[in-house]
């Protein structure tokens, strides 16, 4: 197993009461597997993704990556884990507005310490694979939504992570563009055997992945 969630509980305190968002979620993801997390709005899908990606800490329970608990890694260890083993795709693309498409895609490699020249070459290949090489020198505000998301996908796998977390990656896109983005994600998953954990409330999209986890009322249904 590459990723294991054990009895995850997440609570938020409000002035009136304590809200339990996740209530004892447990599951595992194998290497190269693609898993969809679905559920209605407010069911805790994105919160679960945050816990699994080490961006947030559970109130109870733990997340294990290849048997090692994320909670034991410490802040620096988690950063190192994310830059080496994890890729992210966000609903709103989250590209750095001051960097070109190529520079955005090369960012994880540069953070890893790869030279700018090598990082640019690798990122260029990734963009080419996704049909974006002609837009490499464009800034995010010069790209369409679909193009921005494809750059985000290139950025997510350019450093060959073991798992990609995608939070509603097609949520802001039209059907046609969404399809191209999904294809790109699945292509990466299949060709590179990168595990994919994708949050969506689109049942058709969820159905195209290896497994579907439905969250309801904070628990896996």
């Amino acid at each position: 197993m590459i990723l294991t969630a054990e009895n995850l509980i997440k609570e938020f305190s409000t002035p009136r009461k304590v809200l339990r968002i996740l209530d004892g979620v447990s599951f595992s993801v194998s290497a190269g597997e693609s898993v969809a997390i679905t559920g209605p709005s407010g069911s805790g899908k994105s919160s679960l993704l945050g816990l699994l990606a080490g961006l947030d800490r559970p109130t109870e329970g733990r997340v294990l990556f290849k048997g090692q608990a994320l909670a034991d890694m410490g802040e620096d260890g988690l950063s190192a884990w994310r830059r080496n083993c994890v890729g992210f795709v966000f609903q709103n693309f989250e590209l750095v507005s001051s960097l070109t498409a190529l520079e955005n895609a090369a960012l994880p490699l540069e953070i890893l310490g790869t030279s700018t020249r090598d990082a640019a070459a690798t990122a260029g290949n990734a963009l080419e694979t996704l049909g974006m090489s002609s837009r490499a020198d464009h800034f995010p505000n010069e790209l369409s939504g679909g193009e921005q998301q494809r750059v985000a996908i290139a950025r997510a796998y350019v450093h060959q992570p073991e798992i990609i977390f995608a939070d509603e990656p097609t949520g802001s896109l039209d059907e046609e563009t969404a399809e191209s983005v999904v294809k790109a994600l699945l292509q990466v998953n299949e060709e590179r055997k990168t595990a994919l954990l994708l949050v969506t409330h689109n049942p058709d999209l969820a159905g195209r992945l290896d497994r579907v986890l439905t969250i309801h009322g904070g628990s896996v249904a």
Binding site: S79, V96, I111
Partner: peptide, 15 residues
């Protein structure tokens, strides 16, 4: 917002 994104991509607080 920019820092959060870089952090998600693996930048440490020191970086």
């Amino acid at each position: 917002r920019r820092n959060a994104l870089l952090k998600a991509l693996g930048c440490s607080a020191r970086s």
